[in-house]
């Protein structure tokens, strides 16, 4: 049984007004437990709408969405929060509490975690994203640095311990080091607990490092859905979605055109190994 299942889902914004716009066109999709999925597509391709539909924040205009084989409209919103956690773009703009503790405790408290377990829950979430509970719990969320704010915002969702974690551009506007750090914390959490991850990103390099399955959206339709290696063999799908090829794929393309055999090599490491092996092979053959 699929954890999340979409059947012929369509979504129209501002239906029956002059501003009507079809954001999602007939999407069918199954997501299983423990999968890590990347959703890519250019601005306006329907990525944000799709994840909001999955989280039950929007209901489809047409078609059905099932979470654990139960229609999403029949789920109580609090119960759904325990299953699906969504971190929006720039989540630090939603802070409201006076202290970091209260900010993180908001979600767990809402979904009914008893007060005596709260402290543990908050401590664990903050530690997961590399923040020190003792140091930070009484500070104001508004006085943290940019990277700390982002990590706090992610922790406030992790504290609810959802089965599925949806992240919308979690590293947007961070410095390169902060980007890698945050993704490492998230990966560790997802893998150690066998969670399902859905990552929305413009940054294909980040997608490559993080997920196994990729969904490419264009104008509200899925134009590719499959393992990431398969997407790399279909450069034209990335170009069709009007996305920039990741640097590693550009390099790989050039090298392949020069005649290096690079089948199945997709990381810097693998490509270097192939080239070295190929060079050695040539020099032995020459001598």
């Amino acid at each position: 049984m699929a954890l999340i299942s979409l059947k012929n889902v369509q979504y129209i914004y501002m239906e029956k007004t002059p501003l009507e716009r079809e954001a999602i066109k007939d999407i069918s999709l199954d997501i299983g437990k423990g999968e890590s999925i990347g959703i890519i597509g250019k601005t306006g391709s329907g990525k944000s709408t799709l994840i909001q539909l999955i989280s039950g924040l929007l209901y489809p205009t047409q078609g059905e969405i099932f979470i654990k084989d139960r229609d999403i409209k029949k789920w109580n919103s609090k119960e759904l929060c325990k299953i699906i956690g969504i971190v929006f773009q720039y989540p630090e703009y939603q802070f409201f509490a006076e202290t970091v503790f209260e900010e993180v405790a908001f979600g767990p408290r809402n979904v009914g975690i008893p007060d005596e377990e709260l402290e543990n829950c908050v401590r664990e979430a903050l530690t997961t994203v590399g923040l020190s509970y003792e140091e930070i719990k009484d500070r104001s969320p508004f006085n943290l640095s940019g990277g700390e704010k982002r990590r706090l915002a992610i922790a406030s969702i992790l504290a609810m311990n959802p089965e599925v974690l949806i992240l919308d551009e979690p590293t947007a506007n961070l410095d390169p080091k902060g980007k890698v750090e945050i993704m490492n914390y998230i990966n560790k959490w997802v893998q150690s607990r066998n969670k399902t991850l859905i990552l929305v990103s413009h940054d294909l390099d980040e997608i490559i490092r993080t997920v196994k399955r990729v969904i490419v959206l264009k104008e509200g339709k899925i134009i590719f859905d499959g393992p990431i290696e398969k997407l790399f063999l279909n450069y034209e799908k990335i170009e069709e979605a009007e996305l920039e090829l990741p640097e590693i794929l550009k390099l790989r393309k050039v090298l392949e055109d020069k005649g290096y055999p690079l089948e199945g090599a997709f990381t810097v490491h693998e490509i270097v190994e192939r080239i070295v092996a190929f060079k050695e092979h040539i020099s032995i053959w020459k001598s």
Partner: peptide
Amino acid sequence: IKAQKARGAE
């Protein structure tokens, strides 16, 4: 509103 709903707010 959506973000707080996602954190179980009613």
